[in-house]
Amino acid sequence: MIQVSHLTKFYGPRPAIQDLNFSVNRGEIVGFLGPNGAGKSTTMKILTGFMPASDGIAKIAGFDVFDQPTEVKRNVGFLPENPPVYTEMTVRDYLEFAATLHQVPRSELKRATDSAIERTGLGDVRNRLIGNLSKGYRQRVGLAQALVHLPKVLILDEPTVGLDPKQIIEIRELIKSLAGDHTVILSSHILPEVTATCQRIIVINRGRIVAEDTIDRLTTRMQKGLVYSMVVKNPMDDGIQALRQIDGVSHVSASGSKLTMELRPGSKEIRDQIVETAVTRRMGVLEFSAERLSLEDVFLELTTVEENSGRSSTEPNTALQ
């Protein structure tokens, strides 16, 4: 549904995105993840035809974004960073306007707006002025605008920014329900956001893709080894020493009553052994848990690794100036 190859965009001499390659299949929800200023919005603006790329090709539903912008725009619904709403219009009028702009036939207009209002839960405010609505409702109006013409592709730039927790959950559910009929790309710099809604994520940093995979595979791939933590009543030195001697444990550190054990990569199941050692040494086990490397860590890992290598790769560019 979406193919991007060698996409590059320069703002003056500064590259915003460099040589992006990815594709999104029909009905998929893909998360675009990266710190602020990584190039997420730039990529989205190019995909929606808001701005042209400096180099590379982007195709949506088989149409080239640069050569056939009108066909592309007909098939895309876009929610920019700031919901593009007219504060002096009512929700209804605004959605009708957006639908008309997106070539919804006159006879379908009412049905299209009604269904968009219903799907985004705007029924109560449909006749209110958008200017009088809260940020959360405006965001929903923006989302309703993006899907009022039932586009094949939805591009959502930080769709849940500024919403309260309940609304965030509702919007996430809504986005999930769109999968299948629509292909969705959404961007975020918040991890749980992407974990909760997307099937696949593309991590982008300093204008380059640093990882692209399903969430499960990404965490496993980055997992260097398991970490167990144990809270004990009396963390005696000889007990800790005994734990260190267990085969497969690479490192044990103690802070107060909390012991953290790192395992060598690829080691077999030894939880039984650890607990047994602690019990026989009478350390008084209170808690035992396995700590998985969370996506948060993966994300940090990826973006900080890139920071070092990224700096060296951009140096030739700055030298050229």
């Binding site: 808001f50 009108t70 725009k73 876009f78 920019p80 593009p84 709403v85 702009l101 605008q145």
Partner: peptide, 14 residues
């Protein structure tokens, strides 16, 4: 100012 120009530019009109 209202960021609505993005709506117009990304709509299928010239």
């Amino acid at each position: 100012k209202q960021h609505t120009l993005e709506l117009l530019i990304t709509a299928p009109i010239t």
